[in-house]
Amino acid sequence: MTQRFVLRSVAAATLLASGFAATTQAQAADAVVRIGHVAPISGPQAHFGRDNENGARMAIDDLNAQGLTIGGKKVHFELVAEDDAADPKQGTAAAQKLCDAKVNGVIGHLNSGTTIPAAKVYNQCGLPMITPSATNPELTTFGYKGVFRMLANDKALGAGLAKYASQTLKLKKVAIIDDRTAYGKGVAEVFRDTARTLGMEVVSEQYTNDKAVDFMSILTSIKSKKAEGIFFGGMDPQAGPMLRQMQQLGLTKVYMFGGDGICTDKLKDLSSNARTLGNVVCAVGGASLDKLPSGKAWRTKYDAKFPNQFQVYSPYTYDATMVLVDAMKRANSVDPKVYGPKLAQANYQGVTAKVQFESNGELKNPAMTLYTYKDGKKAALN
């Protein structure tokens, strides 16, 4: 027997053992509670989706370790994960699939462009939904009673970045680029309007899409307008190449501003660690994990379980899953119709925040953290 065969045999035995343990645990439970999760697991934003799903899986594991009893029945939690590829049509299809499967609740989606149309589907089938990352303010304007958000929306992020550009960096001229998605367009418009209110001149407004990788003509046009900062409304698969091309065009003293969509650990790799990475100022709708009481311990646990996969939102998917189940516990029911109203009364101390919701589903008193990149690593500015 070769060493390779032995190692494979041991690995297979370990997987079988863990699978057997999970199956045994599920069989021992009186009820299986299925929680849906939707994010892009394929395509250029898959690293975001995997990170989100990891957070939800970690919560499911921790909940199952508690051996909870709800409604007089011992329950076992399972995650039903779907891929929406950051595409609105695929997102609504995934939402309908979870409705048809009669899952007990939903964590997701990641993008505003998928979350907003999916929320209508969940509302129609009576499924509570908590998004850990969709920040477009429009989401909570439809009056859907079962829709909740775990972090600050784009009004806070876009305005906060504009204030930093004006009041701290003293910039006078800025340009805007957005990817025309619900997220990118929304956060860019908030930055633009706030910048003008603060007296900054918006010298150029340019548009791209969430599949583009060539921004040379856009950046060349902006260079001619002598912008001191560029706000990009979009995600890191575009922000990375944009930073490389800014360096190629000599825009090495121009700041790049962006929301949480670009504020990832992976931005260093996507930008090939361009010198312009150090000019990034980005905002995330929550407090820095390093500054939260249980944040460092949670991150250490996450990294041990999912090495080199952390991006931004996994702590929020973790908390969202916990908040959903906390409502079930308080209602003593896993029926969405019964526990759903309890979500609106959430008062849960999570990893990311003390989770309480406004009447429209927005998080009460959301924090916001600005970041930059020092020696290729994301570092909090506040």
Rank of each mutant, 00 (worst) to 15 (best):
F232H: 01
D269R: 02
V325D: 13
V334A: 11
K226D: 15
F231K: 06
N308L: 09
A239V: 07
Q311L: 05
L249S: 08
L292D: 01
A320L: 07
G234H: 04
K226N: 15
M242R: 09
Q238T: 00
K291F: 12
K225S: 13
Y318N: 03
A327V: 08
Y255L: 05
K337V: 08
F231D: 07
S271E: 10
W298L: 09
T321D: 11
P307V: 09
A327I: 06
P241H: 12
M246Y: 06
A283V: 01
F231P: 01
G234F: 12
V323A: 15
L289E: 11
L251R: 11
F310C: 05
Y313K: 02
V281D: 04
A239G: 09
V312I: 13
C263M: 11
A297C: 09
F310S: 05
A287E: 04
R330T: 12
S294I: 11
A239P: 02
F231L: 11
D269Y: 05
D290P: 03
G258L: 06
P336E: 04
L251F: 13
A274W: 04
T300Q: 15
R330Y: 01
N279F: 03
A331S: 06
D326K: 07
I230H: 15
S314M: 02
K223P: 03
D269I: 05
M256R: 05
P336G: 11
K337P: 04
A331T: 03
V284E: 08
V323G: 07
F232C: 01
Q309N: 14
M242Q: 03
M242Y: 03
T321G: 09
G295I: 07
E228K: 06
S272R: 00
Y302A: 13
C263V: 11
R299Q: 08
A327M: 09
M256V: 13
K253V: 09
S288I: 01
T300Y: 14
G285E: 11
Q309W: 10
V284K: 07
K253S: 14
G278W: 05
Y302K: 07
P237H: 13
P293F: 14
L289V: 08
K329F: 15
A331R: 06
K253I: 05
L289F: 12
A320H: 06
F231V: 01
P241V: 10
L251D: 06
G229Q: 07
T317G: 08
L251P: 00
I222C: 10
S294E: 15
A274M: 10
Y302E: 13
G286L: 03
T276D: 07
V325G: 09
S272D: 02
S288C: 10
Q311N: 12
K225P: 00
N273M: 00
G234A: 03
L267K: 00
G233T: 02
A297V: 13
